[in-house]
Amino acid sequence: MAAGGDHGSPDSYRSPLASRYASPEMCFVFSDRYKFRTWRQLWLWLAEAEQTLGLPITDEQIQEMKSNLENIDFKMAAEEEKRLRHDVMAHVHTFGHCCPKAAGIIHLGATSCYVGDNTDLIILRNALDLLLPKLARVISRLADFAKERASLPTLGFTHFQPAQLTTVGKRCCLWIQDLCMDLQNLKRVRDDLRFRGVKGTTGTQASFLQLFEGDDHKVEQLDKMVTEKAGFKRAFIITGQTYTRKVDIEVLSVLASLGASVHKICTDIRLLANLKEMEEPFEKQQIGSSAMPYKRNPMRSERCCSLARHLMTLVMDPLQTASVQWFERTLDDSANRRICLAEAFLTADTILNTLQNISEGLVVYPKVIERRIRQELPFMATENIIMAMVKAGGSRQDCHEKIRVLSQQAASVVKQEGGDNDLIERIQVDAYFSPIHSQLDHLLDPSSFTGRASQQVQRFLEEEVYPLLKPYESVMKVKAELCL
């Protein structure tokens, strides 16, 4: 049975990233139509530049190519590739079939990587351009969430054990800070992308030097003109047959890092959902379990974690691919890159769409948070109580021993009897502590235990987050809708 299948058929496997999760716009960027249309555009740009620099290419040939950029006979191309065992030459023939007058000058002087690699770089750039505003929107939604809850005390956790208090907004800023680093890295790697350009079979530009009869300047002009037509500021000066596969490492490393950030955020949300302090959106008709109707599973956060793990592992592909590119190139890269580049971007696209949807509907339960604080705060307040007693004339050592005994009794009630923490009640009825009984409410005010959390939130948002989001103001209103 021949390899390949009808990918629109229910009898043929289709990647869930495309069929179930990723956005239509990201799927289109990695589609065959987008790819092969870009090949034709690159052939047109090459012909236009070659004509401008004096090669015998007519206006009629150029116009014929322009008129057929979208006229792609995919069936013919597939048949040609089956016959020739070469995808680029299959599309040269297919393009030439609908451009008979231009057929002889299509791909003039070029090698397969002229269309293959340059198209990949265009796709990487455009895919990054799709991700950047999506990530900015996630940051914006979380920034709104953090600002609104900047002063809401909550129990902090280290080692997932109760620690000092923080605020809900401050905790959210930990998430935002990681995503801001990801946004900066995505922008950097996007701006650092260079075009492969017009380089020939081993990167020496020998074929173009021959076409222009040894004119170095025209060869350099050709490279520059096509690079500018493709919208790049610069091209690699040095290439082998391909652009260095280190570029793929750079791009997928940034995406993998984004995956790590999203995994951490969504894990926190899942843990908070278990504590009943916070939940992701839950639709009115949504079913959490087929057997347990009360369940409210954090399905979206779980999906993000599941896909983020996949995204983090994909960076190993370009690392290994770059390491086995012998001399000017081997074909070890080809099949692998067809999979890992598309999957990385479709996965990143999915987790950003999902995280935006989550961040637009996060639900906080202040009463649950308050109750958990009441359970733990008495123990945390013991040092403040000791200091207040010393100020009232008591002995630190005597007070410490009193607190120690009462704390152990209260802990026994919590752990052995399943009761509430009654340390404060014990202190309130103990005559030894009568000098500070009137101060206990103040000493137990949760806001006095959150330090500068709310001020940190305000400063972080104003100095770091809002300036970073400013270039994306025009796209901030787009909502994230999930079908599944």
Rank of each mutant, 00 (worst) to 15 (best):
K134H: 14
R371E: 00
T166D: 00
M389H: 07
Q397V: 07
S9V: 14
A411L: 06
T119V: 14
I373T: 07
A348S: 11
T321M: 10
I106D: 00
L174P: 06
F74K: 13
L222S: 01
M476A: 15
K170F: 05
M387G: 15
M225E: 12
V88G: 06
D430V: 06
Q177V: 14
F327P: 02
I72D: 09
D144Q: 15
K477V: 15
Q164D: 00
D332R: 02
L53H: 05
R149N: 11
R372H: 14
A110L: 05
L55G: 01
G5P: 07
C173M: 03
G231W: 05
N185H: 11
T94L: 15
T201K: 02
A410I: 02
L183N: 05
E81R: 00
R396C: 04
L44E: 06
N185R: 11
A308E: 02
G156K: 00
R245Q: 09
K75V: 12
T382P: 01
H97Q: 13
Q177P: 02
H107T: 02
G156I: 04
P281I: 08
D349T: 10
S12R: 15
F282N: 13
L179I: 14
Y114L: 03
N421F: 03
T111S: 11
V92G: 09
E328N: 01
L222C: 10
S112L: 00
Y13W: 15
M292Y: 01
T242K: 02
Y294Q: 04
L46K: 01
P10M: 15
D317G: 13
L84H: 07
G288I: 06
F195T: 06
E360Y: 06
R83H: 13
V364C: 10
G203K: 02
F145R: 06
D349H: 07
Y365Q: 10
L484C: 13
E417R: 11
Q241G: 01
W326P: 00
L44M: 09
E70K: 13
T239E: 00
S289K: 02
I105M: 10
L121A: 11
K82C: 11
R338V: 01
I436T: 06
D59R: 10
E360H: 04
M26Y: 00
I238D: 01
C180P: 01
R329L: 03
S12F: 13
R245S: 02
S290R: 01
V115S: 07
P16I: 15
S448N: 15
C304Y: 01
Y365A: 11
R33E: 13
F232V: 03
E80F: 07
R33V: 14
R372Q: 05
E79N: 11
D11T: 08
G116Y: 01
P471R: 15
D332V: 01
K295F: 01
A410Y: 04
